[in-house]
Design a protein around this nucleic acid. Sequence first.
RNA 1: CGGGGUGUAGCUUAGCCUGGUAGAGCGCCUGGUUUGGGACCAGGAGGUCGUAGGUUCGAAUCCUAUCGCCCCGACCA
Length: 586
Amino acid sequence: MKLWSQYFIPTLKESPADAEIASHKLLVRAGLVRKLGGGLYTYLPLGLRVIQKLTQICREELDAAGAIELWMPHVHPAENWQQGPRWAAAREIMFRADSAGDGKRGPREPEFVLGPTHEEVITPLVKAEITSYRDLPKNFYQIATKFRNEIRPRYGLMRAREFIMMDAYSFDVDDNGAIKSYHAMKAAYESFFRRVGAHTIAVEADTGVMGGSFSHEFMVPAEVGDADVIYNDESGYAANREKATSALVPADFVDAAPGGALEEFPTPGVVTIAALEAAPFSVPAEKQFKTLVYIGEGKPFLVILRGCDELEEAKLGALGFAVFRPATPDEIEPVLGAKPGSLGAVKGTIKNAAALAGVFADQAIRLVGDGTTGANKDGFHLRNVNVARDLAVTKFGDFRRVRPGEPDVKSGQPLQVRRGIEVGHIFILGTKYAEKYGAAYTDDQKQSHLMVMGCYGIGISRTMQAIIEHSHDADGILWPWNCAPFHVLVCVLDPQLPEAMEIARKLAAAAGRAGADVLVDDRAERPGVKFKDADLIGIPLRLTIGGKGLKEGIVELKWRAQKDVAKVPLADAEARVAAAVAEAQA
RNA sequence: CGGGGUGUAGCUUAGCCUGGUAGAGCGCCUGGUUUGGGACCAGGAGGUCGUAGGUUCGAAUCCUAUCGCCCCGACCA
């Protein structure tokens, strides 16, 4: 039991100017957090209590799933990362953790970095400590602070530079073992999110090395989410926009036969899809090819899409380049022979085809049949470009961004889109890290094999905010019972009356015995202030004890989420409170 | 990092365009009246106007630079 007057809950009437969304405003107004700097927050006592509830439930679920808790350093030798597969890609978002020095030394490679995640630490550990199949599988986790120098911290805890995350890493003898570990974690996640009252949906995400459906993100639907979920309720299909596909090209689709010979025609000044759509050319975007040039690990490659489609850049990850970026016009011209706006991938028109690392085409271009594309000659395009006959495609794939309304791959029903907050992610990593760090084991035939890894994350602090985002009203937060900072608020309107405080203590004790965490508002404030604060901080069950009620011999019992107030005779109050707590816990 | 904003008391802000004594509300302190949904009266404390240069007789206000913060884009739990 805590007395409000002796605790620390700095509530605010007004929202801070830098808070944009409801959950961010409420985090600050309800006295859960305070900002230190961009993306850096102090967890005040109330906020910390919520975090502790979440971590405890998370721990229970993971332990039940067979995962083992440990604790790793957050200052990592940069060397660990330099040995790993993603130093080049990850260093941008990593904090360096060297001596602050005197600022006089010039730039140099960092000696230490702050951990944004821990594959680079856990894998060498497991390599050193586990060498036999007898010691596998293992799944290690920690619940700890993570550091990412976010390019743009945003929305309070939603995207912070320092945040609290559960991260787990599974090690198995083979793919089947990894899949088993994966499903155990998926079940643990579902149980965790259900228990804490976060209504998540599991959506398919980028699967990386394994393919299939071995990556899921857990999303809390919310307008302010920063990820798009493409879904169809009937078929149950749900995928991150970066991953989502549609049945745009029927499985039995047969490419059209060439309709005519290639023909070059002048298009002075035409450098956009839209300009080619307009008169006098009047080529619909669906009949155009869009040719994009990227640089992957130093080498240029082409991506071809329909003129009407957008590239989903994340899908280029499937091509296997560690780092890639759009090419600049200066880089494009020497390779293709023209400036952007007149580019194409037709055989024989590419100035220096040998320089290309590949020509990757979205499968939807097959629908185009005979289309129009740049001639790799400024001011000229080609028509009657037939995919099969004229394009030198290295590999077809799925590179376009899905649009709502397209047919679902499962049911053919139209896809829909909604926004969500990503609060968890599970992923089978394969042997990518095991290979780099030499994490191998010996099987019962004395053969050595690489371990197959999985990694799993839950954004604990983000989950706290996501819960607020979908569980609040105009007056404040509505905490789900299991993650509420306190379960019961005993609101004493006349704390100067010894009788009132005595009853408050009695009821608080009764609630406590029933298993509730109790906060007693004993402040010498006016009732209005107390009620407003009570609604703001959102404790699920409120008991009100006031001079008026005491004269009638009653106390009031009110659920934060409901309007009605129950008047309970003093004699029954302890039993009623205990029953209410028991009911809420069930 | 690109684009757009913004910085005035613990919080929310007016004043800036058109240079001339820094204002309000909330919160805080004192006293009084109040007391079931953010009370009222009286008094009070609290501000290098983000920072550094510049223009000017004079700068919160105009100019330059710089830093912080917020929003839009690429990244992620």
